[in-house]
Nucleic acid binder design. Structure first.
Lengths: 168, 168
DNA sequence: TAAAATAGTACTAAAAAGGTACTGTTTTAT
DNA sequence: ATAAAACAGTACCTTTTTAGTACTATTTTA
């Protein structure tokens, strides 16, 4: 089912919590654990990963805790997944990788995998964390622009997919 | 890495082979096995799944074999993944599922998962199998329309994501 | 100096994936 | 008729990945 692993799943839940309480000064692992019903060790582990990936800032000591390193509309779901679960690709067989696949020499569609991976990545890189906290949960046609990260952000990718067809 | 399982990976390779030899009358499991360097039992297993999922037709007997049930431009990568790997969703926690998640009652972002799943599914459902056999492997901006399944096909989904922003 | 928080590492049990083997059924050609 | 070549279905086992926990060290504040 191409499922996210639990860590990543939990990570999105946790970051959504941060996004919702973005005004609060710092949130501790204990705080998050209570709010999400996830075990403290589990939460702690994921927070460390998010820290290492640059999505959170941390402060040690008795008044320490974590906070988002950027605004929720400048962090994408795709980026979160990449931090917790590695590259946003459905296969490791791309034009750039070498030797990962034993049938590589005979594989005739190798260059085409890039298209699948790109379509997938592009879709998730455009979905901002802030869309997880918006009052209306489901995207309607009119919401689609509001719930997208715009071109001027930090994302290098410039390809657009799913362009509106002018014939309908 | 949100990776496709091997069966699905192989399945796309196999169906791409069918797409490429769409004029040939029937292709046997042995034929596919030779062409892809995948073991015969493996190929056989996947072909059966694809048959069951309605993507292939089969004929028994000594002159038997398999063929695509539709044209390659009417089969989407997303559909293939759904047949071989289940629903195109990154989490099983959606508004429609019940009881799959033990922290369900305390999960505040449950309705929002649908957005992630939809973005993902929509991207892959629009990518046709025929794009795997096109001479130019990578999508350029101008290719994007050519390599998309159009609205008039059998897909019920009508949402579009990633619309071009008129400010750039 | 004690308490509350982050930082880092290592281990283990459970679940999923990947692959193979075996047996049965259908059709064609001799 | 019967053997061969292909599809059809099921069950099993091994390996890998995932999920979760435990333990220890470090930092900061009151």
């Amino acid at each position: 089912m191409i499922q996210l692993n639990k860590h990543t799943d939990y990570g999105i839940v946790i970051l959504t919590h941060f996004a919702r309480y973005n005004d609060a000064p710092l949130l501790s692992a204990k705080n998050i654990s209570d709010a999400t019903s996830l075990s403290l060790p589990m939460v702690s582990k994921i927070l460390k990963q998010l820290l290492k990936g640059g999505l959170l800032k941390s402060y040690q000591g008795v008044k320490g805790g974590y906070q988002l390193s950027r605004n929720p509309d400048e962090i994408s779901i795709g980026e979160i997944i990449e931090v917790l679960d590695g590259p946003l690709a459905l296969t490791e067989c791309t034009a750039s990788t070498q030797g990962a696949c034993k049938t590589e020499h005979s594989c005739s569609i190798k260059p085409h995998w890039a298209a699948i991976n790109r379509v997938m990545r592009d879709a998730l890189i455009k979905l901002p964390l802030s869309s997880m906290t918006s009052p209306i949960p489901l995207w309607s046609e009119n919401d689609s622009k509001r719930n997208q990260i715009q071109e001027k952000t930090f994302y290098p990718l410039k390809i657009r997919i799913g362009e509106k067809n002018e014939h309908d």
